[in-house]
Simulated scan of single mutants.
Amino acid sequence: MDIHDNGPKPNVFDIETATVENSNYRAVAWTGKHLQVTLMSIEPGKTIGLEVHKGTDQFLRIDQGKGVAKIGPAEDDLQEYEVEDGWSIQVPEGMWHDVENTGDEPLRLYAIYAPTHHAKGIVQATAEKAEEDEEAGRDEPPKWVAEVDTKGEEKA
Score class of each variant (00 low, 15 high):
Glu75His: 00
Lys155Glu: 12
Asn6Ser: 09
Leu107Asn: 04
Ile42Met: 13
Gly86Arg: 09
Asp63Ile: 02
Glu131Thr: 06
Glu93Val: 01
Thr47Ser: 15
Asp63Leu: 11
Met40Ala: 15
Met1Thr: 15
Arg26Met: 05
Lys9Thr: 03
Glu131Tyr: 10
Val68Asp: 09
Lys151Asp: 05
Gly121Thr: 03
Ala127Tyr: 13
Asp98Leu: 07
Gln124Arg: 03
Arg26His: 05
Trp30Glu: 07
Gly121Leu: 00
Thr116Gly: 08
Pro115His: 02
Asn6Leu: 02
Asn24Leu: 10
Val20Thr: 10
Leu39Gln: 08
His53Thr: 09
Gln58Val: 15
Val91Gln: 13
Glu128Gln: 06
Ala27Gly: 06
Gly121Trp: 04
Met40Leu: 10
Asp104Met: 03
Gln36Tyr: 14
Asn24Asp: 13
Leu107Ala: 04
Pro44Arg: 01
Gly7Ala: 05
Tyr81Pro: 08
Val83Glu: 05
Leu39Met: 11
Asp104Arg: 03
Gly137Leu: 10
Val28Ile: 04
Tyr25Gly: 12
His4Ile: 06
Gly49Trp: 04
Pro73His: 09
Ile15Leu: 09
Ala18Gly: 09
Glu154Asn: 02
Gly94Leu: 11
Asp77Glu: 13
Tyr113Gln: 08
Thr47Asp: 15
Glu82Met: 10
Ile89Val: 15
Asn6Tyr: 02
Arg138Ile: 09
Val37Met: 12
Asp14Val: 00
Glu75Ala: 05
Leu60Lys: 07
Ser88Ala: 14
Val52Thr: 13
Glu128Ala: 14
Ala146Trp: 04
Arg61Val: 08
Ser23Gly: 06
Gly103Arg: 02
Gly49Tyr: 05
Glu132Phe: 01
Lys143Gln: 11
Asp63Pro: 06
Glu105Met: 15
Asp63Trp: 07
Ala130Trp: 06
